[in-house]
């Protein structure tokens, strides 16, 4: 089995993914990810030399529209979904000391 995913990689991926895993979850994630990567390595059988990576199936790029406000003011309804709000703003934990 692939051993690409070790403790160090799990820590790093946890930082990227903004997830805090328990020790048990980390062990499971290591196993799961190594197994998935083994499986994904099947793609190495393919010769993709000279193939352009395809991110979008149709050649659509830069779709623009006029920057015009079409919706009504919905601030209060949007804020109603926020876990915390104050004076018409989202309330977040202190970020600057």
């Amino acid at each position: 089995m692939s051993e690409l995913i070790n403790d160090e990689v799990i820590e790093y991926v946890g930082i990227l993914a903004k997830l805090e895993l328990s020790e048990e979850e980390k062990e499971q994630a290591k196993k799961d990810m190594n197994r998935m990567l083994d499986y994904i390595d099947k793609l190495n059988e393919l010769d993709v030399t000279g193939v352009e990576p395809m991110s979008h199936v149709f050649p659509v790029t830069n779709v623009f529209r006029e920057d015009i406000i079409t919706n009504a003011d919905s601030r209060d309804r949007i804020l109603a979904n926020a876990p915390a709000q104050k004076e018409g703003c989202f309330k977040v934990p202190r970020t600057v000391e």
């Binding site: 995913i5 790093y12 991926v13 990227l16 993914a17 895993l21 994630a29 799961d32 998935m36």
Partner: peptide, 12 residues
Amino acid sequence: KRRIMLGSFVLS
């Protein structure tokens, strides 16, 4: 979580 972890890894 499994998919977010895998996705973060393959993009790293």
